[in-house]
Design a binder for these strands. Structure first.
Lengths: 189, 189
DNA sequence: TGGCTTTGGCTAATTCCGTTAGCTAAAAGC
DNA sequence: GCTTTTAGCTAACGGAATTAGCCAAAGCCA
């Protein structure tokens, strides 16, 4: 019985990949173990259980999304940053539906839960998307919530098949992002 | 052993209520049976299983949301309809988080799945919210998707605690709805 | 009223999944 | 090379969904 060379990171990564393939809700310890060529109880040497695994996948997702948006908006501002960041976010959710779901389901446990750091980074990425718009500081929180709501709602509806069979979904997304851009440009009050 | 007087409708309603209380993901046949003063296998005389139960709760939710929005927008148009419908939707999601989750998770089974009718009614309610805005017919689908995305995203983030401890969430929601209203008013192209 | 049929409960048993306990061999350290 | 730690494994438990099969309550009809 040679060892499989697993650790928390590789188990999490494999779990994330499997969740993307079969759906986060269908992810099970048994399936993941089989995928890794190992028996289910062995996974408990690396993660504390299914809840811990889901949490870790969620942290991975948050981190990856923050990175994707951050990279997309690097060196851009205004509409360019908004469009690039929005596209990065949507693409991530479409390409990694399982992780995306895990990321949204994850709730920070303690005060030093690494999830908090990941969420903070993601927030920084969201803010970066708004660089270049002259926003009234009092309104910034509302704008941020608008952005998150709209992009998360769109990605979530699209990923779960909420839009009638994909007619013009790309067009809709472009339209939506432009709508927000124009609104932000003309927002006074 | 007197009978409990259950049927598919009452089981579904009780399941929906329980899901709202403890969360849709924690809903189980055993808990629901206990709540109804019955043993778990007895539920199978009324619903085909947990998947069927979830599906029925989803249909119930879609129908109730359509009704709530429809009633809120009755006799209104333009911004009044938008604000009233958006409030109705948000309120529903907050007061019935379990059902709301079930409604979003439900996928139509066959061509004559009653879920389809419920979804159609909900779409009609969405459209009613836009009555009074002179929308380019080519853009209407995009506007609808913007509305759904934003409201669903907001409701979903708020219901799952996605917004940092409820500071100004009401204000944000009002701001977001106004943002959309103003955008729709000035949309040309 | 009385008997027949249908229906909606029940218990018992199966299966599947997550999880824990305890064993053992592989790796790592001295 | 010997000891210690670690990462697999098998066996077993508990909980949840589900199915089979039994039986009494309700409904129906002469």
């Amino acid at each position: 019985m040679p060892r499989a060379g697993l650790d928390a990171g590789s188990v999490t990564a494999a779990g994330a990949a499997l969740a993307d393939e079969i759906g986060f809700d269908r992810l099970s310890m048994g399936l993941l173990a089989e995928r890794l060529g190992v028996k289910a109880p062995s996974l408990y040497k690396h993660v504390a259980g299914q809840a811990d695994l889901s949490h870790r996948i969620g942290i991975l997702a948050m981190t990856e999304i923050a990175d994707a948006i951050g990279e997309a908006t690097r060196g851009r501002a205004g509409r360019d940053a908004l469009v690039a960041g929005a596209d990065a976010m949507r693409t991530y959710a479409l390409e990694h539906p399982g992780r995306y779901t895990a990321g949204n389901a994850a709730r920070p446990g303690g005060p030093d839960d690494p999830l908090r750091a990941a969420v903070d980074r993601l927030f920084a990425s969201w803010s970066a998307m708004l660089r270049g718009y002259r926003l009234d500081p009092d309104q910034e929180i509302h704008v941020l919530r608008l952005l998150r709501s709209t992009l998360h709602g769109f990605a979530s509806l699209e990923a779960t098949g909420g839009f009638r069979i994909g007619i013009d979904v790309d067009d809709s997304f472009t339209w939506v992002v432009r709508f927000i851009d124009q609104g932000l440009r003309t927002t006074r009050q």
